[in-house]
Design a protein around this nucleic acid. Sequence first.
RNA 1: GCUCCCGUAGUGUAGCGGCCAAUCAUCACGGCCUCUCGAGCCGUAGACUCGGGUUCAAAUCCCGACGGGAGCACCA
Length: 471
Amino acid sequence: MVTRFPPEPNGYLHIGHAKAAIVDYEYAQIYDGKFILRFDDTNPENAKIEFYEVQKEDLRWLDIEWDREYHTSDNLKTHYKLAEQLINQGDAYICKCTPEAIKEGRFHSKACSCRKRSHGETLGIWKELLSSGESKGAILRLRGEMKSANTAMRDPTLFRVIDKEHPLQGDKYRVWPTYDFAGAVEDSISGVTHPFRTKEYELRDPVYFRILSLLNLRKPHLMEFSRLSIKGMPVSKRKIKPLIEKGLVLGYDDIRLPTLRGLKKRGIVPEAIRQFVFSQGISKAESTVDFSIVEAINRKILDPKAKRYFFVSNPVKLSVDDAPKRKISLKLHPTVDMGERMIATDSVFFVQKEDMQNMTTGDIFRLKGLYNVKIQETGDAISGRYEGEKLIADTAKIQWTTKDFIKMKIYVPGLIFKKDSYNTKSLVELHGYAEKAVSDLKSGEIIQFERVGFVRIEKQEEEIIGFFAHK
RNA sequence: GCUCCCGUAGUGUAGCGGCCAAUCAUCACGGCCUCUCGAGCCGUAGACUCGGGUUCAAAUCCCGACGGGAGCACCA
């Protein structure tokens, strides 16, 4: 078994690409086959040099390895040869009609006069095209079936002229194969046995096989699956690009976006994406998944690995009378041995405003891991009294910091789209104090702030910021 | 408009003629456990779009309706 992942190097990879890549890769693994990474860079207007590397980085992040890597644009000579074969067989012809006329003809199943062009004449124009002569607007069309009920079969375009410098090939070529031609040919000659593609290509299957038949090339076993869509998370560049241009999102790695970079930044681990893709399977039923499924998977992976720390949002000052000075060590994980951190306490603490709101004088709560405190005074500055060490059942255990805190903010992502329009409240900033030990973390580490959630820590210059993954 | 694909709990998903009074996950709710509102454990609730047909037997096969999606580019 040989599979392949054929991205166009025109942008960052997103969860939809991940589904395809993971399915392709895993199938090859399961059947002990080969997996090919092929850049379908047959349109110099789209392909950008930086994305070849970017996409490979994204794949590596997903722990995907490939046995072979190549660019379709490296094989143009072969494509030309095969095109010539089609021309000589009378299976392709040069069409010089306008795009509008072609569209019109397709719609009404009417062939244009170009279809009558002889092989000889077509071959002549074809050569002229290749050698950068005139013949602008000419395309090479498959002699398909203009009467076919399937519009994709009504003489689809095989090659067209694009006079633009290619990021890899420079100005070496100006005649480029379309997806229909390049995809079929490459799958076949590269030895791919099981190419997967998304459902929207289904109507092009007959084109795919027709091309290979005429060329007498081996036919792979095409398979289709539905596109992956996540509620409130658009995948299309059409929708994301305007947001970036308007400055509504920071970039393609915005934590609200389902790009691999966005997911990574927010603390979704590759293994979670892999498991998520598996849980979806490769059926053709279209569905819109809720992101909570990804979160649940990610949480299960992270829970035994993430260190625990305290973070206090909306901090209010708490002074404790008779507070014993302590040097305590708190475990970094409740059940897994990950070491501990030391905290020195005196009589001043910061606690979460929300935790204090429902407290009244006389209530007892526990500074988690430390001791109990009885409220004496509520308000803007809260005071309490030391109330012993002993755990009291059913008292609230709240997280806290000393005055030796780190000020930080956490970005909390929400659904970027609500009912198809930009959700202005999709990114919330949580300001607060984290305990000192957080400064020892490596940038990129994913931790759990107790009672807050899993957060990926990033160090930017002097600042420490957090990106909220999920509860 | 034409063509194709799809249709199982709120959301996904397994099942693809009998073992299905339908799997698993997620979500919601309840309980247990826990010095986190996390994790874990236990439980509750919740689905085969509809109508015909084939068959001893249909979620599974066939037909039709309805609903959803996709394609009808010199983009992939």
